[in-house]
C-alpha cells in the first residue's frame, strides 16, 4: 500500500475529531475527540517515518502518546472536580472564565 493512503486516513480521522470537538457539548466526548485528533497526527507521524526510513517519527509518536495520557489524566480530574462541585457537565455552561 502506498504511504499516501495512510496519510489520507490520518487526515480523515483528524477531521472527524475536529468536527466532534466543535459539535459535542459533553466534555467527556470532547476529550475523546481530542484523542482522535492526536491519533490522526500519530498515524501521519508513523507513516512519514516509514516513508523516510528512520525511527525518529515513531519516537515522536510515542512522545505524543505520553502527552495524550497526561492530557487525559488532567482532563478527567477536571471532570471529576466539576461533578463534585455539582456544576453542569456541559462545556457551554462552564463559561466562568469567559472574558
Amino acid at each position: 500500500m502506498g504511504i499516501g493512503w495512510f496519510l489520507a486516513v490520518s487526515a480523515i480521522v483528524f477531521s472527524i475529531g475536529a468536527g466532534g470537538v466543535l459539535t459535542r457539548r459533553n466534555p467527556l466526548v470532547v476529550l475523546l475527540c481530542l484523542e482522535l485528533m492526536l491519533n490522526g497526527a500519530n498515524l501521519a507521524l508513523v507513516a512519514f517515518a516509514r516513508l523516510w526510513g528512520g525511527e525518529d517519527g515513531q519516537v515522536f509518536a510515542l512522545v505524543v502518546m505520553v502527552i495524550a495520557a497526561c492530557e487525559v489524566t488532567v482532563g478527567l480530574g477536571l471532570i471529576v472536580a466539576i461533578y463534585r462541585r455539582q456544576l453542569p457537565i456541559d462545556v457551554d455552561e462552564l463559561n466562568e472564565l469567559q472574558g
Partner: peptide
Amino acid sequence: LYLFVVAYVGGGAQLASG
C-alpha cells in the same frame, strides 16, 4: 480510566450543540 470516569459521572446531559 475513561470508562471508570464515565461510570462515575454518569454520562451527563445528552445535549446537542447550538
